[in-house]
Design a protein around this nucleic acid. Structure first.
Length: 596
RNA sequence: GGGGCUGUAGUAGAGUCGGUUACAACGCCGGCCUGUCACGCCGGAGGUCGCGGGUUCAAGUCCCGUCAGCCCCGCCA
């Protein structure tokens, strides 16, 4: 059957638009058939586009041709309709629809294209398995949830451009085909045909280029830019993701933070109408770890970690005493009113902390009769009093202890804290708690590689007062680095950079990057820094993670139009795929047999 | 590299202790219906129980392997 031609028809309104103010007007709408309700005589069609749904009414008494055509119409057909907007008869108004007061009395209908029956319904009710959704992504994207998310993403991108433009930032594009550098994530490599045997790398971030732009005098730069990291995926991690990347000259940490708080406030105002209180809270890295165990704490609830190491160091409970003697940490959280958790729940919490390397979880139920706990018998009455004091414990509370190395205790108990906050409903999705985490360590020791690695990146400036530590005790040096954390999620991070080539060389040295290698890999940066580099610093926000929070999405895939699966494949296009031998030959590449 | 969850008509599910022809819903197809709106009523079609192997008289169900999707650890300057 032949489709109708569009001809010279012009769409006058989107489907979500017609309301009572248009009553009496002749309009033309185009879209997809959400549903057809055929009453034998009268036919109703719900017509959908990205702005909403409007009801078409086809009456054989008004126009036989269009009514007959409407009988052939099926779900997801693309049609165009002309007619008069009219008030619905009394008692037939649909208050749940924006357009529910009116309908279009169709006088002419055109079927612009037919559609196969879709594999799933294009509505907000039907739940569909992720693999089916991804295979038919173009259909999933028709559904209201993803339409909403991507339209909000556009709104956010627009707000970013408007705000930063207003602050004197200039949008500059940087190369996608760039140079592989040591440090950091695995690079995606792109072979060069013109230079057989050599490879480009896709950028993990435009870090070096934006610093060069500061040397070039652009003063304030930004870019909404794709970044690539060849690492394993998570619910909030994709191999290609988008950063709001910014860099500023002649600024210190507080200047960057103040400017960026304005950006975040503008985004939240525009996207969800939220007034963000400024200035935002701040925590040092050390305090975040001490109180919450992690560097990305969710501040929507308390449940803080209490350090009991000194208190239990001399106790009869060997597990605690030995950890204390070995320089580890014994910490606990008090789950208020948690004493009614079942044994099964407690076993579940124990399994949970084991994921993060803890050997176990000690629990105490505080009852009228005192501690109900496998470890109660190890403590003297005096110790129990002090423990209860430190933990502010009351009858009905549940105390949970982890004893291990500092790293494991903090991580395990901190993650358990987050888990419990979610489970106990302490973390409301309507609550937005921003916090800047500052004063990160500059370096951390990589036991496997037996060298220091940069916590942030190798271009991060130490705190000025900590520069002497680079020679005496580099592991203690703190960085002028900062993360923005929102509800337990790291949404952005940045630093003031090194603008002095001698300090930069010293850093490479500490990272075990020899002078020759530094010249080879980063020579262009060192050269640039030697030609009058201004003091500069910047930040990058993860746009995808911001969008997850703004849309309350559980998965990063719900804020990206065409995301990849956990195995980094695209179910729609079937990428990545094998290529012709001829293509490989041109690139000088031969594939090795898989090692068994 | 490792741990876990899931896989049954187009979709999302039920399927008991291994036992007759694998259920009902939504969708789809046909018919009826002039005020419905996740319309209604009647009828119908639709299945490689992810795939392979094994145990058994008999496997959707039990065992082994494998594939895919998802969640997590490692990894992610």
């Amino acid at each position: 059957m032949q489709n109708d031609k569009l001809g010279n028809w012009k769409r006058t309104h989107r489907c979500g638009e017609p309301t009572a103010v248009l009553i009496g007007q002749e309009i033309c709408v185009m879209g997809w058939v959400q549903r057809r309700r055929d009453h034998g005589g009268l036919i109703f069609i719900d017509l959908r586009d990205r702005e909403g749904i409007v009801q078409l009414a086809l009456d054989p008494d008004r126009d036989v041709t269009s009514h007959r055509k409407a009988e052939q119409v099926r779900t997801e057909y693309v049609i165009a309709a002309r007619g008069r907007v009219s008030a619905r008869p009394q008692g037939t108004v649909n208050p749940r629809m924006k357009t529910g007061e009116v309908e279009i009395e169709v006088t002419e209908l055109r079927i612009l294209n037919r559609s196969e029956t879709p594999p799933f319904m294009i509505d907000e009710y039907t739940e569909v398995a992720e693999n089916i959704r991804l295979k038919y992504r173009y259909l999933d994207l028709r559904r209201p949830a993803l339409q909403r998310n991507l339209m909000m993403r556009h709104l956010v991108a627009r707000t970013v451009r408007t705000y930063l433009d207003g602050q004197g930032f200039i949008e500059v594009e940087t190369p996608v085909l760039t140079k592989s550098t040591p440090e950091g994530a695995r690079d995606y490599l792109v072979p060069s045909r013109v230079n057989v045997g050599n490879f480009y790398a896709l950028p993990q971030s435009p870090q070096l280029f934006k610093q060069l732009l500061m040397v070039s005098g652009f003063d304030r730069y930004f870019q909404i830019v794709k970044c690539f990291r060849d690492e394993d995926l998570r619910a909030d991690r994709q191999p290609e993701f988008t950063q709001i990347d910014c860099e500023m000259s002649f600024v210190n940490r507080d200047d960057v933070i103040a400017t960026m708080e304005g950006l975040i406030a503008a985004i939240f105002k525009e996207a969800i109408g939220l007034e963000v209180q400024l200035p935002m809270e701040r925590l040092t890295y050390a305090e975040a770890l001490r109180r919450f165990g992690v560097d990305n704490p969710d501040l929507r609830f308390a449940l803080e970690l209490v350090d009991l190491t000194a208190l239990v160091a001399d106790s009869q409970f060997k597990v605690f005493a030995e950890v204390a003697a070995a320089g580890g940490l014994v910490k606990a959280i008090n789950v208020k009113g948690g004493a009614d958790f079942s044994r099964k729940d407690l076993d579940g919490f124990t399994d949970f902390v084991k994921i993060y390397g803890a050997k176990g979880l000690a629990w105490v139920k505080v009852t009228e009769e005192g501690w109900q706990s496998p470890i109660a018998k190890f403590f003297t009455a005096a110790e129990l009093i002090r423990l209860n004091q430190e933990l502010s414990s009351e009858v009905g509370d549940l105390l949970l202890f982890v004893a291990d190395t500092a790293g494991i205790t903090n991580e395990a108990l901190g993650r358990l804290r987050g888990h419990l906050g979610q489970r106990l409903g302490l973390a409301s999705k309507d609550d937005y708690r921003f916090v800047w985490v500052t004063d990160f360590p500059l370096l951390e020791w990589d036991a496997e590689a037996k060298r220091h690695v940069a916590v942030h990146h190798p271009f991060t400036s130490p705190l000025e007062e900590d520069i002497p530590l680079l020679d005496s005790d580099p592991g203690k040096a703190r960085a002028q680095a900062y993360d923005l954390v929102l509800n337990g999620s790291e949404v952005g991070g940045g630093s003031v950079r090194i603008h002095d080539p001698s300090v930069q060389s010293r850093l490479f040295e500490l990272l075990g990057i020899g002078e020759e290698e530094a010249q080879l890999k980063f020579g262009f940066l060192l050269d640039a820094l030697s030609y009058g580099a201004p003091p500069h610093g910047g930040i990058a926000f993860g746009l995808d993670r911001l969008m997850m929070i703004l849309t309350a999405a559980d998965s990063i895939r719900d804020v990206i139009a065409f995301p990849k699966t956990q195995k980094a494949t695209c179910m729609l296009s079937d990428a990545p795929n094998a290529v012709d031998e001829k293509q490989l030959q041109e690139l000088g590449i031969r594939l090795r047999k898989k090692q068994e």
